[in-house]
Amino acid sequence: MKCLIQHNPEYVSLAWGAMKFLFVAFVNHENACSTLAKGLCQIGSILPRAELSLILYPTKRMKRAVAELYANIIKFLVRSKRWYEEGKLKHIWHSLSRPSELRYADLLENVKERSELIETLSASGAQAEQREIHRKIDHEGSQLTVMHEEVRELKAIIMSCFSHPR
Rank of each mutant, 00 (worst) to 15 (best):
E129L: 08
E149R: 07
R152A: 12
F21L: 11
I55S: 11
R114K: 03
N31G: 09
G17Y: 01
L54I: 04
R98F: 15
S115L: 07
W83M: 02
L22P: 00
H91Q: 07
I133E: 11
S34R: 06
R152S: 12
P9M: 01
H7Y: 08
I133L: 12
I157T: 06
A50E: 05
N31H: 14
L40D: 02
F21N: 06
E150P: 00
I157E: 13
L40E: 13
S163D: 12
F23I: 07
E140A: 07
W93K: 10
L36P: 03
K60F: 15
A25V: 07
K155P: 00
S13F: 05
A105V: 03
T120Q: 05
I74V: 10
V27G: 04
V146I: 14
L107V: 01
V66Q: 02
E101Q: 14
N72S: 15
I157D: 12
F162Y: 15
L69K: 04
R166P: 11
I73V: 15
R98G: 03
E68N: 14
S95Q: 09
L107N: 15
S124E: 15
E132W: 00
S122G: 11
T35G: 03
L154Y: 13
Q127W: 06
E30R: 01
L102P: 00
Y70D: 10
R82A: 14
F76M: 06
L96D: 02
K63P: 01
I158R: 11
A123Y: 10
H94S: 14
A65F: 08
